[in-house]
Design a protein around this nucleic acid. Structure first.
Lengths: 143, 143
DNA sequence: TATTGTTATACTCTATAACTATA
DNA sequence: TATAGTTATAGAGTATAACAATA
């Protein structure tokens, strides 16, 4: 069932590797334009969706909770994020973006060219096809 | 021409983000199984194709040459890589994998499940289609 | 007792700048 | 003088272990 290292599979894997590399370059570049590191940009992006306890951020980033302390420290010292108490559990600190943090996150999303430029080479039909193939590949297809 | 943030494009970009995340997890996991960091695994992978001058490695990894010194140091101290003089230019040092380095690189490639598992959900026809869409997306389509 | 966040520590990766040995 | 590689330095991300406050 598992495809061997046939030429087609190798070719597709190489292409995915290229996509991964390009995606990362663009992401890091967009982050640095706002004087953010990749990790800081990822955390800010997460929090701009919804405030999260420190623990949850670590789970989303798949890293140790102790690392989040420093990343949020740096975002907080720049006024992009703040720590709030959780009324329900006084052990928990909720990290939430400030107004400026939300603006930065918004501009960050806008400068992610990857969202537009490479996909502009595809028609709507092709994008739909790509979406379905990726869903099936990731095992997240609706059906 | 440039697609706006229409729902379809956003969905595809999210899927690509998921692919990127999964790819990285798998890569880091495979590297750590051989007690290598991601950067060390990437350099070893490059050198297993062909020995390279330090400078070239930096260009491939898109980082500063000074960083390569340490990465190759660590690979060399573990007997996976060696530095050779370049007969043509005595300033240049060629980094080349040892026999054990080549074996490690080979096993590393084999443990990259990403090359097989996710793509196994697709038929040959679908993989061909995916290949063509990615090529067009990246602007590397043969035609 | 268990959990949340933090601190302390050590290692790796990263960029910058200055150095050396070649060219 | 220019280039290849290195060293020195500083900042950031990472994991591990131990800690205080709270549950």
């Amino acid at each position: 069932m598992t495809p061997r290292a046939d030429p087609l599979t190798v070719e597709v894997v190489d292409l995915i590797g290229t996509v991964v590399a390009r995606y990362h370059e663009e992401y890091e570049h967009a982050a640095s334009q706002h004087s953010l590191t990749g990790a800081q940009a990822r955390v800010l992006g997460l929090l701009s969706v919804e405030p999260l306890p420190m623990r949850k951020i670590a789970q989303r980033l798949k890293c140790e909770p102790s690392n989040i302390t420093g990343i949020v420290d740096r975002l907080e010292s720049r006024g992009l994020v703040e720590r709030r108490p959780d009324p329900a559990d006084r052990r928990v600190k909720l990290a939430a973006p400030t107004a400026e943090g939300r603006r930065t996150a918004e501009r960050l999303r806008g400068s992610l060219h990857f969202a537009r430029e490479p996909l502009s080479h595809l028609t709507v039909t092709e994008r739909t096809l790509l979406k379905e193939l990726l869903q099936r590949m990731l095992g997240t297809a609706p059906e």
